[in-house]
Design a binder for these strands. Sequence first.
RNA 1: GGCCCCGUAGCUCAGCCGGAUAGAGCAACCGCCUUCUAAGCGGUAGGUCGCAGGUUCGAAUCCUGCCGGGGUCGCCA
Length: 592
Amino acid sequence: MNIFSAFHAAIAAILDSIAASGRLPETLDYSRFVVEPPKDAAHGDLATNAAMVFAKEAKANFANPRQLAVEIAAALADLPDVAEAEVAGPGFINIRLKPSVYADVLRAVLNDCEAYGRPQGRGALAGRINVEYVSANPTGPMHVGHGRGAVFGDALANLLAFAGAEVTREYYINDAGAQVDVLARSAFLRYREALGETIAIPEGLYPGDYLKAAGEAIAKQYGRGLLDKSESEWLEPVKRAAIDAMMAMIRDDLAALDIAHEVFFSERTLHEKINGLSQIDKEINELRARGLVYDGRLPPPKGQLPDDWEDREQTLFRSTDFGDDVDRPLKKSDGSNTYFAADIAYHKSKIDRGYTTLVDIWGADHGGYVKRMSAAVAALSDNKVALDVKLCQLVKLMRGGEPVKMSKRAGDFVTLREVVDEVGVDAVRFMMLYRKNDAPLEFDLAKVIEQSKDNAVFYVQYAHARAKSAVRQALAAFPDLDLTPQALAGAPLELLQDEGEIALAKAIAQYPRLIESAAAAHEPHRIAFYLYDLASVFHSHWNKGKDRPQLRFVNSDDRNSTSARMALVVSLTCVLASGSRLLGVSAPDEMR
RNA sequence: GGCCCCGUAGCUCAGCCGGAUAGAGCAACCGCCUUCUAAGCGGUAGGUCGCAGGUUCGAAUCCUGCCGGGGUCGCCA
C-alpha cells in the first residue's frame, strides 16, 4: 500500500472528471504533478502541486491556480480516507488523512512484511536490466575502491530486482591486453621461484606475494616442463593459469562481501578469431557498413601536446553522431584493437542478449569514457537500449580520524579483504552505501565498529534489535499473545494515538515511495539514509518511554495497547529488515 | 585548453526530473540522567545553498558565464 501513488491516482481521476466537463484538456501529462509529504508536518499528511503544474492549461476556465485547487480539494475532501483538504499559498493542496489510513498502512505492512514496499503498477520497473560491476583487472587482489563499486552495484541490483525488473549481475573480465601479459611474466617468475630458484622481480612486473600461490600451482601442473621453453611458448598457458588464480581470489574476496555475479564475461573471447575474424572485427565491420566507422585523422588534443604525438590516419568510430565530442579510435598504431573496440563488441553482446537497460558501474577516473560508450550503445541499439553509467568516487581509509598510511613499498596496499576481515561485512556494505556514489567517501575503520549513536550502521541495526527485544518482552508479559505479523494485523490499531507512534507509522508509510524513487534514480544510498531516519524516529519514541512508562511498547497491565504497539513494532522490523536486505546488511535480533 | 564530477551550517554530508520558513549527524553552548527501555536523553544557536546573470507565479534544484577543488584527454584497462 503506497498512499502517495494511491492519491496520485485519485487526483488524476479528479482531473479526468474536470476534463470530461470540458474545462481542462484531455491530454494532460499526469506524471508532471507530484504527491509528497509536506516539509512541514503541520501542513498535514500529503501535499500536491497538481493545480499549479496545470495552471497554464487551466487558464481558459480557471482565473488562477487557486481556483483549480479549490475544485480539486473539494473533490478530495469527499474521499473516505480524507479528513481535510485545503488550499494553501498559490495553489498547494494540503491533505490531512484520517488516522485510520495509518492503521490500514500497518495492516498492509503486516500482511506483506518484507515484501511490503515492492512497487506495483505505475512505479514498478519492467524489462531486463544488466548491471555490470566490479570488473577489476585480474592482476591482483581487490582494493577498497573496488569494494565500493562492488557493494554499490550489488545493492543497486537488489533494488532493481525488488522494484520488478529482471536483473543480471555481470562481471567483465579484462583478460586481454598488455596487463595480463605482465601478470603472466610475473607469475612465471613465481613459478621458477616455486621450483627453487632465487628470483628478483624487475621494475614493471607485479611484485605482490599473492602471486606465489599461482606460481606454485603452475609448478604443480607443469613440473619443470616450462623452464626451458621460450616465452612465446609458455606465455599462454601461464597467463591462463594466472588469470584463473586471480579470478578465484577475486571471487573469494567478493564472496566475503556476500557478492556473487551470475555472469562472468571474458574479454578474451571477443578477441578470439574464428575463421580469421574476431567478434570485435565483426562489429566494426557492421558499423563500417552502416557508415559509422571510417578511416580518418583526428585533430591533436588541445592544450599541451603529448610528446609522442604523431598525426596519422586511423580507424574511427563516428561517436560525434551520438553526442560525443570527438570521434574515437578503434585501432592502436600496431593494428590491434583499442579497449574501446572491445567494449563496443561487449556492449553489443549485452544488447543482443536482450537487455532493455544497461547499467555500468565504473570508477570516477573513467568519467571521460562515458560519452563514447553511451554513443556506442545508442548506435548499436538504434537508440533502443539505455545505458546508465554510475561513477563511484574514491574511498579514503581513515582510522580514528587519521588517514591510514599506505606503505610506499611496491605491491603493499590495504586490500578489501583486510578491511572486511577487520570490521565485518555489515559495516563495509552500509558505509559504502551511506554516501552518494559520486561523492568521495571517508571510511573510518574505528568509527564503523563503534557501538554508539555516531555510527550509522550500529544505529540502524540497534533499532532492529531493540524492536525484536520489545517483541520478546511482550511475549514474556503475555505468553499467549500471537505476535506473528498476520495475527497482529487484527490488533486494535486505533489505540495508537501518541504522536510518536503516529510519526513512526508515517515514516513506515514512506517506504514504498522511497523504494520507487531510489530504483528509478539508480540510487541505493537513499535506502541507507531512509533506514537511518526511520531508526531515529523509533529510538526517539522509545526514549520517551524512560520518563513516561505509559508510552512503553510493552505494558503488562494492558494487553490491548501492547498488542497494538506490537503491530507497530513488528511493522518496523519488517521494513528495517527489508531495507537492510536490499543493502545486503544484516538485521540482527540482538546486539552482541 | 576541451570534456565530466563536485562546491549547501565550523566539520562530514543529505535534499537537486522546480514548490511553502533549506535538513541530519558531529563539534559548540544550555539543561537532565548515572540508568539494564543498556551501548545516554532533551534543547539552543549556527546558512548571501561558490559568484553573477537568465528562464519561471516560484530556483539549492533548470540554462549561460565566471571562480575554486578533483578527474580525464589516440597507441592503459
